[in-house]
Every structure is written in structure tokens, then in C-alpha cells.
């Protein structure tokens, strides 16, 4: 008896499935037709990368090599250098978007909030070299998702302001004084 019941159940299940699919066949598709329709993407969606600037309008990136180290496909390369005023910056900064998998790990690793992924994903083209972005292509004129953060204000090295003038710092030790 059980076998027959099972059989019946099985067959109904199959028929039910067939009915369901048949029903949907008559439905209107829900697909959005890109590129005729472009859905506005959330700010945190991950596509083409930019290098942002801090509130003073300076390049945020200090070329610390953390993003290039964390990148699982090794598509970031750069050379750090020292600006005349002592600021560390990338002399060149290259991202190969032909390799990037838009995982966002670089953004997560970045201590200065410089590197950020943006919702702009439309990069396909016929020349693969066009997917290799240099610093000129990456650098933007705003702070991206955060317009306040200024790494050098917290770093504890003399860059924006002298030693002892930054957030949560005492005045420099006076070597000539014997007071405790």
C-alpha cells in the first residue's frame, strides 16, 4: 500500500511542478532591460576603483602598499615616493581592471580611506590596455564615501602640523629641561 501511496505522491509532485512552471510561462518577465534601463546602484556597490582626496584636497593615498599586498589577484601596483614637503604619496599607481575581481579587499585594507570602489561598472571595451588605469585615471576630486577623515591628523608624524599638535598628542619632550 505504501508503495502505491508513494507513487501517487510522487506523481502529483511531478505534476504540480509541471503546473507551476507552466503557470510562470504566461507571466511577464521581471528582467530589467540594460542598457535601456539603468538601475541606480547603492553607493556601496563594488565596481571601478577611485583614489579620493582628504578634506584639504590632498591625495589621501600614502602609497603604503597595503592594498597591493591584500589584493588577491595582484592587480594593484605602485611606487611610493616623498613629496618635497615630506608627504608620502604614490608616484605612480596602477590598477589593472582586466584582472580586478572587485572584491573590495583593497578598500578594506586601506588605512587612509583613499582607495574606494564605486558603483560605476561600465568599463568594457575592445582594447584591453584601456582597462589598465593609471593614477590620472583613478584620482578623483572628492572624498568618496567619507569627506572628513584625514589620516595625517592622526598619524603622529609631522606632516599637517608639527609634532605634538595633532589629535590626542602631548607637546614634544623638551630635551633641555630636567623637569619630569
Amino acid at each position: 500500500m505504501g508503495t502505491i501511496k508513494n507513487l501517487a505522491e510522487g506523481i502529483t509532485a511531478l505534476l504540480k511542478g509541471l503546473a507551476t512552471t507552466l503557470k510562470i510561462l504566461s507571466r511577464k518577465p521581471v528582467t530589467e532591460q540594460y542598457p535601456e534601463y539603468r538601475r541606480p546602484l547603492p553607493a556601496r556597490s563594488r565596481a571601478v576603483i577611485v583614489l579620493t582626496r582628504d578634506p584639504d584636497g590632498e591625495e589621501r593615498c600614502v602609497a603604503c602598499y597595503l592594498c597591493s599586498a591584500v589584493c588577491p589577484v595582484s592587480c594593484i601596483s605602485m611606487q611610493s615616493a616623498e613629496r618635497e614637503d615630506g608627504r608620502r604619496y604614490p608616484r605612480w599607481f596602477r590598477i589593472n581592471f582586466a584582472r580586478c575581481i572587485y572584491c573590495g579587499l583593497c578598500e578594506e585594507a586601506c588605512p587612509t580611506l583613499a582607495i574606494q570602489l564605486t558603483p560605476n561598472f561600465e568599463t568594457s571595451g575592445r582594447d584591453i590596455l584601456k582597462l589598465v588605469y593609471e593614477k590620472e585615471d583613478l584620482l578623483v576630486n572628492h572624498g568618496g564615501k567619507n569627506n572628513e577623515y584625514n589620516f595625517y591628523k592622526r598619524a603622529g608624524v609631522a606632516m599637517v602640523g608639527d609634532k605634538g599638535t595633532q589629535i590626542n598628542e602631548d607637546k614634544p619632550v623638551d630635551l633641555k629641561s630636567n623637569l619630569p
Partner: peptide, 13 residues
């Protein structure tokens, strides 16, 4: 008292 400057420190790594 250590500063927060590993990213610009050459010893980092």
C-alpha cells in the same frame, strides 16, 4: 605612546 603611522613607516612589513 606609539603613533598611528604604520602606513607611512618604512619599517612596516
Amino acid at each position: 605612546n606609539h603613533p598611528h603611522d604604520c602606513p607611512v613607516c618604512d619599517e612596516g612589513g
